[in-house]
Design a protein around this nucleic acid. Structure first.
Lengths: 182, 182
DNA sequence: GTCTATATACAGATAGAC
DNA sequence: GTCTATCTGTATATAGAC
């Protein structure tokens, strides 16, 4: 079992980073190649087209998300709390992949939209047994969506208005209280 | 007091529609001109650059949002309920303008991001007196953000997974209950 | 496996006729 | 006020050397 080629991962990291900080329009093959430290030709050896790059990014997001769902289901403070809490972990690989994929989806990439909807359905299945009813489930999912959306709106590395630390703890507690299964 | 030129509004409507249904990448001057029923030269008579078009769209969104906030503050079932409920009115001019502006923001347009953040601050000021504390305020805002984000993810005219009718009523009620001022 | 050079297409914007 | 024709920059992708 061999590790994936390092250069491929470096390119994907660069692509992701540009999408997150500068948006879809800035993520050109030139810019990606520059940031990844390769030439455009080198990039196109690893990914034969822009679409191949998009597909790889979406695949990375899906893999990370599915692995994360297994972890959430076993979280010590409960899946709901863990799910909301981790929706705001901006620096982590999964959250970077989701934010980058969201930018693609907003730019009109339907494969990205479909993948995000698919992951959202898996989240729903994971949370459903732990909340009161479908309305409570919607609340949990929408708070998570809201956190991701605000993450994605923050261009560059500005801190943004998202709750952190004690504020985040309070929000998680409120969501858990409001949706807890009787 | 004269009405704004009809052609200008038609162009802005076409721009908005393409952003919503096909994403930022598809919103080229050619496509906008075609859908608005004018030539590219005609379009550029009304808006001298792509940036002028973006600025006009962001301005329309801001105007509609500020007017809407005044209405929400006077809503019969309370500002919180009205705010959450109207976050999912996908066909209305304000919501179309917000969704289109979100697409711009995701594509890297910082003016769009700044405008959306500004409106979000106004919403927060409007809702704050009617909820228990800052945590409850965050919950209300994040549910609204989540509804908008899901709207924006739905490309084309697919119905999407958003709550409607009785489901939306139940969600509104849950949010009001969970955040109501003591 | 990575590079330079180039082909092709399309974006935004200009010029000037009508 | 709206059009056609055209210019310029830049994006993706190809060809082929090293």
């Amino acid at each position: 079992m061999s590790r994936p080629p390092l250069a491929r991962e470096k390119v994907l990291d660069a692509y992701e980073a540009i999408l997150i900080t500068d948006g879809e329009r800035a993520a050109t093959m030139d810019a990606i190649a520059r940031d990844a430290g390769v030439s455009k030709g080198g990039l196109l050896y690893h990914y034969e087209s822009k679409e191949a790059l998009e597909t790889a990014l979406i695949g990375r997001m899906t893999d990370l998300a599915l692995a994360d769902i297994d972890e959430l289901a076993a979280a010590p403070d409960g899946p709901v709390a863990a799910f909301v809490r981790t929706s705001v972990m901006t620096g982590h690989p999964l959250d970077r992949a989701i934010t980058a994929t969201s930018k693609l989806a907003q730019a009109g990439n339907t494969a990205a939209s479909d993948a995000l909807r698919g992951i959202r359905d898996r989240w729903a299945d994971m949370v459903r047994p732990h909340v009161r009813d479908e309305t409570a489930l919607q609340l949990v999912l929408l708070v998570s969506d809201g956190l991701y959306f605000n993450n994605a709106l923050v261009t560059g590395v500005l801190p943004g208005p998202l709750p952190r630390g004690a504020d985040l703890d309070a929000l998680v507690e409120l969501v858990v209280q409001a949706t807890r299964d009787a």
